[in-house]
């Protein structure tokens, strides 16, 4: 059983205004793997994530999740297996309380309130936010909001979690807490991030995207130690690797 594998084969994507965002991208991610997607601004990271989650569909090429092709007619089914954590938690937390927000997904899937409550509790526990259930989202700190957004996705019990810039706006302590949560997850994780330290702390492998194509991929932290490669794509070696 390999629930949670992703395969991207020769995918290109043009925006309606003609901008080419991705060119002939191929990659594969095994079930249970944690992979970082890095690259400068405008490299196409977010576009790739939107393609993987069925928010956009490729101009050419195919995306397969668990061996099933992601198409408009299959995306409803596949979206149950893929959770997407948005960059801005305010986009994801739209209900009046944390509990209702985390319950939104399971309720839409049609579960009874007992099952909904079980999932909500489990998801909140997984991100260490059990005490926040009755709070309104706008009274939470950035770190708490990030954790709760992740919980809203975990309550769907997905086999893949895709995160867009999970570290943005977090202070060092918040980032460490987030890294711990991400390490504890057993599902497949793919995160697009500028935060290479967070990538090293939570992922075993990285894919470097620039100009809409995959320019490098390899295990962490070795990939980020390659100073020439990092410089060529406008990235900096993470602080944790600098003093060797």
């Amino acid at each position: 059983m390999n629930a949670g594998s992703i395969e991207v084969v020769a995918v290109s994507f043009d925006y309606p205004d003609g901008t080419r965002a991705l060119r002939d991208v191929s990659l594969s991610i095994r079930a249970g793997e944690a992979v970082a997607l890095v690259g400068p601004n405008g490299a196409g990271k977010t576009t790739l994530l939107l393609l993987l989650t069925g928010c956009l569909f490729p101009t050419s090429g195919t995306v397969r999740v668990d061996g099933m092709e992601l198409r408009p007619d299959t995306c409803t089914e596949l979206r149950r297996r893929i959770g997407f954590v948005f960059q801005d938690p305010d986009d994801q937390l739209f209900m009046p309380t944390v509990w209702d927000d985390v319950a939104f997904g399971p309720r839409n899937l049609g579960y009874g309130e007992a099952e909904v409550a079980r999932r909500v509790r489990a998801a909140l526990d997984a991100v260490g936010a059990a005490g926040l259930a009755e709070r309104p989202p706008y009274r939470l700190s950035v770190g708490q909001r990030r954790a709760v957004s992740l919980a809203t996705v975990l309550a769907m019990e997905p086999s893949i979690v895709v995160l867009d810039e999970p570290g943005a706006g977090l202070d060092p302590r918040g980032r460490r807490a987030l890294a711990r949560i991400l390490l504890d997850l057993s599902c497949t994780r793919l995160m697009a991030t500028h935060d290479l330290d967070l990538a090293v702390a939570t992922c075993r492998r990285a894919i470097l995207l620039d100009g809409g194509t995959v320019v490098a991929e390899g295990p962490l932290p070795d990939l980020f130690a390659d100073e020439a490669l990092m410089d060529a794509h406008g990235l900096e070696r993470p602080a944790s690797l600098r003093h060797h």
Binding site: T53, C55, T76, R79, R80, I82, G83, F84, F86, D91, Q92, F94, F104, G105, N108, L109, T152, V153, M156
Partner: peptide, 9 residues
């Protein structure tokens, strides 16, 4: 989009 991803039809 966030709602759709969580089953809102």
């Amino acid at each position: 989009r966030a709602m759709e991803m969580r089953g809102f039809d």
